[in-house]
Structure formats: C-alpha cells, structure tokens
Design a protein around this nucleic acid. Sequence first.
DNA 1: GCACTTTGGCAACACCGTTGCCAAAGTGGA
DNA 2: TCCACTTTGGCAACGGTGTTGCCAAAGTGC
Lengths: 386, 386
Amino acid sequence: MNRANDGTGGTVGTGGARGGANLLALRSHNTALVLDLLRAAGPEGVSRLELAERTGLTPQAVSKITARLRADGLAAAAGQRASTGGKPRTLLRLVPEAGHAIGAHLDRDELRTVLVDLVGTVVGERRAPLDLGAGADAVVAEVAREAETLAAEVPGSGRGAGPLGVGLFGVGVALPGPLDHTRGVLHRVTGFPEWDGFALRDALAGRLGVPVVVDKDTNAAALGLAVGGERGSFAYLHLGTGLGAGLVLGGSVHRGARTGAGEFGHQVIQLDGPPCTCGARGCVEALCLAAVARGDLAGAARVLGVAAANLAALLDIDQVLLGGRTVAAHPGAFVEGVAAVLRARAHREGDHDPAVPVRVAPGGLRAVAEGAAQLLLGPVFGRGDR
Amino acid sequence: MNRANDGTGGTVGTGGARGGANLLALRSHNTALVLDLLRAAGPEGVSRLELAERTGLTPQAVSKITARLRADGLAAAAGQRASTGGKPRTLLRLVPEAGHAIGAHLDRDELRTVLVDLVGTVVGERRAPLDLGAGADAVVAEVAREAETLAAEVPGSGRGAGPLGVGLFGVGVALPGPLDHTRGVLHRVTGFPEWDGFALRDALAGRLGVPVVVDKDTNAAALGLAVGGERGSFAYLHLGTGLGAGLVLGGSVHRGARTGAGEFGHQVIQLDGPPCTCGARGCVEALCLAAVARGDLAGAARVLGVAAANLAALLDIDQVLLGGRTVAAHPGAFVEGVAAVLRARAHREGDHDPAVPVRVAPGGLRAVAEGAAQLLLGPVFGRGDR
DNA sequence: GCACTTTGGCAACACCGTTGCCAAAGTGGA
DNA sequence: TCCACTTTGGCAACGGTGTTGCCAAAGTGC
C-alpha cells in the first residue's frame, strides 16, 4: 500500500537554496535510515529495539516504519535473538529481491555491466569490448543492449517497471572524464571530441524507459565503498590509465558544484617538475605514471603517497583506499609505499594522531560498476547527493 | 511563549551514526531556514511569499513559523512592498537586538573580542595584548574579563542570561593550532607546551556561566564568511605568521572528524624541497614565507597559487578568499599572483570552466573574531556542524 | 463605486513521532 | 506445574507538524 519512497525526496525547492522539510520528507528520511541499518545488518537481521537505539527514534516509531516496510515487501522477519529473560527480540532483514539496479562501467576499452539486488549483491555480470570511437549512438545502443539482457534476469521486470518494490530502479553509468552529474551530460571524453556535450543520461533513459544516472568512475566507486560499509570519510584513489580520486566526506560523496571534485591526478607536487599532458608541470599523475613506466614502483608509490598525504591532511579523512588496474597489479608495493609517507607525515606533525590507514579498496576491478548501480540504490538508503 | 530553538537540535543519537528526525527537529530545521533568509534579507525585509518560494514551504507554513518568531520577538514587520494589483506584501525583518554573541580571537600576541548582534553586526569591540606564556589561568581570566566587559553592553544581559531572545548566546573562541572542536580541548599550542590538552571550553564556560565554543581561527573565519553572505563552497586561505585554510563545502564548514581539516600550510608542493619546521620538505608554508622574507612577493603569491589551484581542483570550489596579516599588507600582489596560477590551470584543463575567482576576504583583521561569534549564532540559522 | 487581484489568517485535516497501556512470549524460582 | 517477573512490540489516544479549503482584508484599475 504505502510507498517507502515516492521518489520526490521531500519538498523540492529546486536550485541552490537549502530546502524546507515537510512530513513526507521526514518520513522518507527516517525510512531511509532504517533501511540503511537493515542493509548493513545483512541476512542475520536486526531487532526493532536495536534500530531504535541506533537511529534515536522511539521503539514505537521504528515499529510503525518497519510495519510499512514489511507491508511493502522490502523487509521480512529473520528469526529471533536469544531471550535475555523476556520475550526474545524479533529480527528483521531486508528482502534482497525487492529491487534491483544495473551499473555500467564504461572503461577505456571495455564495458562492464552488473545487476545488483537491493542489498548490493551482484547477481549478474556481463563484459563486452567497448569502442568509444564508434560514436555516441552505437555506444548507447550497446550499453542499452547489455542492460536489457541483464534486466531480463529480474523477475517481473521489463521496461517501464515501477520504481520500487518490483523490477528495476534504473541504470547507473560510470565513466572517466569531466561531466555534469546533475544533468547527465558529458563535457569531454579524452581523445573523442565528438562526445563533447553529449546528453548521455537522457539518451539512455529515453531508450530504456527507466531512470538513468551518470557519474564519474571515481565517484561511483567511492559511493559503492561508502554504501558497502566503509565508515566515515575517506578518499578512493584510482590509478589506472590515469589517476583520479573519489571523496567521501561524512558518509556522502563530495562532487562539488560542477562534479569536478576529485581532480587528483593533476595536483602539482613538484614546482617546475616535468611537463604533464594537461599543460602544467609536476602533476602527480605524470610523475607517478612515469615511475611506473620505468619500473620504479617504490618511486611511484612514494609520489602517490605525498599527494595522498596532502589530501589526508587537508580534509582530515579517516582512511585512504587504493584501486585501479595499476594498483591491482602491485597492491603490496603501493599500499606500503603510500602508508610509509603517511606514517612519516603523522609522526612529524604531532604525536597525538595515528597515521591515516591505507588499504586496497575491496571490490577489485568490479568496484566501479557496482558503485554505478549504487547511484540508483544509494538514495533509497539516504546516500544521495548533498 | 514558544521557543524558536530549544537547543537540543532535534533527536540526539549521539555518536557517528546518522540520527532520526522527529517533529521537533523538523520545526527547528524549518525555523532555522526562515531565520537564515530573514537575516540574509537585511533591514529591508522579505515577504512571507518570498520566504515560501525560497524554502519550498507552503505560504501557510511560513505564516505559522513567522508568527512564532514575531511572538518571540525575533522578527518584526518592516513596511510593505508596492502592490502589484492586490494587497501589498508585508515585509518581515530580523530584530537585531533579539540576541547577541561574543567572539574572541586569540592571536599570537593580541586578544581581540567583538560583540555581535543577531544579524551579525559588530556592536562592540575590544583589543588587548596577549601573552600565552602567562599560563592558562591568566589567559582564561583575561578572556573572561574582556568578554564580561563587552557583555555588559547588552541590555538586560549578564551572567546566566537565557539562551535566546534576551542577553547572550555565548562566547566563541578562535585560535590557531590543532584542537578538538567538539570537546573544546586544545591539543597543542606551538611554543607553549603547558597548554597541551587544556580544556579551554569548560574552563571558560565554568567561569562565565554561558555556553562556549572553541574552534580553529581559520574555521571561524570561514564560518563568518559563509554566514556573511559568501555562497556555495569556498576556501579561506589565511597567511599570517603561518598558513592555514578554512573550508566551506556546500554552505557548511568542513572540519573533518578530528577538527584537523584545513591543514593547508604543510601541503607539499615541491618534492625534496627545502625543509620545513614540521619535518617534511617542500611545504607551501615554508616556501611561501621564505619568499615573503626575501621580499619576493610574486614568488610567494605563485607558490600560494599552486597550492590553491590544487585545492580548488580537488574540491571543485567556487572561489578562493585570502586573508591574514601578510595578505593584508600586500593584497594586490597576492590576489593577482594567485589568480594568475588559477587562470593558467583552468585554461589548460579545458575551455568549459572559467577560472576560480580569487578575492581578499571581507572583514579584514576582524574576520576571525567575527567568525568566532558566529560559532554561537550560526546554529540558530542552521549553520551548525555537519 | 464596483470588479478584480493578491495577501495572509482561520479552521479542518492528514499524518508524523510520542506516550500510556497491555497482550504475548519468554525466563526462572517455588 | 504454577506463578512472578522481564522483555518485546502492537494498539489507541495525543500533541503538533505542514497542508488544504475557505474567506476577510487590502490593495489596483476601470
């Protein structure tokens, strides 16, 4: 009967101004909070009282919210906890099949698409070669074809399916390069000027008949990690054919006003250093990739570490996560090299704070595609834009 | 009768978890939104319908909220707009005398305190020499004395005055160096080890009997600028005896989990560059101050510009604001030097985006003290932590 | 003087989380 | 086996939010 999320996201107030909130927005907010905790709890489930404690809501409010979710088929009972002297707590879990989303990762030469259920589990995956030079129409057609093939696996789905509770939420598309996340328009695709200003979101949405969201690959990966359980604030550093970053501050992806945030590769860390393809001198990307090219992994990691330490100090983040093909090829060398720089910086500046931890981002080469799917699922759990 | 803000700030849910919202939180949120627009409108005022349009609330909701504010004495009628064929719109404005806050700026050798009214106008100011070496008790006593002298100017105020509608909201204290904003504890005061771990907030609050908030000088200045009308996201770069930054992202100050964000002076921009006092090499602060010391203002500005361009690219901010004694001494040279680097970077990376604008921050040497007062006033207008 | 437009308050309403209450479902001791 | 006790969680009533429908008030313009 009830809708857990009607898609309006509360009162509108379009534009830059902060918006007023009404009762509908209040309900969506609290419902999203509960859904987020249900998802985080996994198949074991959580009790109502635990949800109440962790949201700050009263137990009765949680009961009302979870009753709606159960009526909508989004949540279900999952056994009960051991008694502590009274009636045992009933555990609730999210129903994974209650919704799905598709994530598409347009890499330089490969298209990777995944079908993800409501809890974020990948339940379908496809890979296909990609040729951006074939033109926008051909690429859009190819992405649509792959998405439709995957979508056919969703029970009761198909084009035009409802937004929630059954079928497909939509398709998230992640790709490198500057673009406008809010409008879904590409600014520039390096090496393929015919893509400049292409309205990818509308083209794909018009063809598929489901919502489409477009974002930078690094932002998608960062969102996927944030939804996947990484807490607090962190930076996802992606080292592949280029170098970029996705920033998560306070649990939300920071994109900046023009989706330009995370421009990490062209951070200058060597005044008057070697020239970069961007025109500047001493960019991390140029220094790092040059070191990789000559086989100097320690040098590449050190350079990356210096830039990561700059970022960590500037934003006071909780951890640094590394990903991308180049990192995947030599994970140990990069993690240790970057961590060494962060340790040195922390010890020099004061004894109070421990060094920012560095890890390889979970998810591997599928992280971007999974994150792309979270562009649609995230808002359901309150992980939308900010 | 009614309280526009009861200080609880909605449901608690202390800790890192995102909190649930109840009706009280909803009301505070919308009330803060309306208050913020009233403050931004200035003495001319705004009409109810304009408030409704800009918040996304219905006119009737705005009427209810403004009726409460008028009953509380926070808002009042301010004439009416010209008719457009019907009943003319009644204009509403904030009552400046409805509340005050004190801001204290503990600089290296000077204590500057300001008394600010509800709309942010400075209505009192004091300056006194400061000697951090005199010990915590002496400094706390001195700050308390200055604050009490200023507070005496508030009609109907005094110690223990109510939090809203009459008297003093509290005292905001801004000072350099690492500290814990949430607990009001100093970590380290460069050159004065006896201050390590001093609970400044509690010491001062206990003595004055009003709420006290402590923050870094750069964060306070950035908050003051954000409340003072600077829109969107920006960085405030403070170049005085040291170099630091305050970051405003999406209208709110970004402090990071440990109030460490804005560590800008020790961004490394020259690998294996000259050693810095922090132990690292090639920090902007060392490079920039060395250039200033040898009279090379263009060089100092260029170095600052490189670091500013890194920051602007990483966070996709809307503008860069410069402040601090060194900038105040040579504003033209720094603004132009930094702007030149940002222009060059923008043109190299693409033709779409114009360069990030650079300006001298308004407020001058009083900006930090004014911002410190906003540490108390800001939350009333929804500009609290995030 | 009258028709019309526009503002903004009053009253009724739907619905949010909250509170008070109590049935259901367990434990543990007699 | 019974009973006192603890704990869970649903039902009902409640206060208070923004919303809707309605209309008096206050202007303009013919």
